[in-house]
Nucleic acid binder design. Sequence first.
DNA 1: GTCTATATCCAGATAGAC
DNA 2: GTCTATCTGGATATAGAC
Lengths: 208, 208
Amino acid sequence: MIVVMDTRERLIESTRELLWERGYVGTSPKAIQQRSGAGQGSMYHHFDGKPALALAAIGRSAGALKAAAEVEFARPGTVVERVTGYLRRERDAVKGCPVGRLTQDPDVMADPRLRRPVQDVFAWLTDRLAGLLAEGRANGELDIGLDPAATAAALVAVVQGGYVLARSAGSPGIYAQAIDGALGLLAGHVRYPPHPDPGAQHPDDPHQ
Amino acid sequence: MIVVMDTRERLIESTRELLWERGYVGTSPKAIQQRSGAGQGSMYHHFDGKPALALAAIGRSAGALKAAAEVEFARPGTVVERVTGYLRRERDAVKGCPVGRLTQDPDVMADPRLRRPVQDVFAWLTDRLAGLLAEGRANGELDIGLDPAATAAALVAVVQGGYVLARSAGSPGIYAQAIDGALGLLAGHVRYPPHPDPGAQHPDDPHQ
DNA sequence: GTCTATATCCAGATAGAC
DNA sequence: GTCTATCTGGATATAGAC
């Protein structure tokens, strides 16, 4: 299947890539034009300027992050399996997180409109994960003493910090190690089996 | 005590602050001159150019990070107490990590000389922490099943990722929560008491 | 919608006087 | 050591023709 992108679409995708690779401060209109193949006039026809283009690109990256996480969270399986799926999801660790890296961009953080999608997606992510952990605590899978909100924040932080370590090392090994460490720590709070939940399909217990 | 810095010193410190606040790409020679109070000619007399100035500033930030961590690691007390001290050390979470933020700077990562101190300090930090955790495992304080290297990577990642979350939220609460979560997870692997170590002074057991 | 021309300002220096 | 002058190029647009 060949997907032909129109100019507007190519501008947004090129901006997304450049924000990921070089950040907002490090991305120039000229670089966006060259990568997208659009001319000067064409770019300013479709978008007011660099901030408007960045807003479209950032919104899209935040949406993609949310969707990719939700895929893992919504899988069948125990809470621990789904959390593990999220943490072990394939990522290009050395490339870093397209949303997380924006928190280091002073001009993004200074502009409320650019900052909003970044703030919102991390708030959503930690809340969603906290809900999942609370579910695991309620069904007996996880220790009653485990704080869902704090644990969720820690797990999201391990992913974001894992990117930092992988970039500093220039290789993804330390990212995988950090995830392993987090799962090893979590394992100390897992109790089997979870209580059966009539509303859920469990792969090991498919009511056959 | 009044400390008078000479021009060279003010240039390095100003660069350090600007790299922290705005990154390498976002920091211009002019901004450095204005903050340091040095003129154009003065700056280029003391340093070859922006990369040379950044190298001095980054080396200093990396050294400061290492020294601050070592203060916590070298305190008296159990391994868990010292790891807790490191994690709970006062940090301006919203400002972020002066070294970690450089991993998002494409021009820093692309220059081996600028990148080296960043890479080295994170490698040192995870190794140092892994050694401490191995010590805790050996003296019976920590579960035998705990992987020191992976756990160390996870804990360093929680700190770095906590900064990302705090910056995204614009407030330090989520950073503290992530640290709490990590310590809560670690608590599931702590066994008391540690074996007595004749070479160490323990505050709860001071051989009085 | 896309193109080219033009404009202003800043980045990042170099040169030489003092 | 510090100052001012000067330079090349890129960032970030705006204007108007096609």
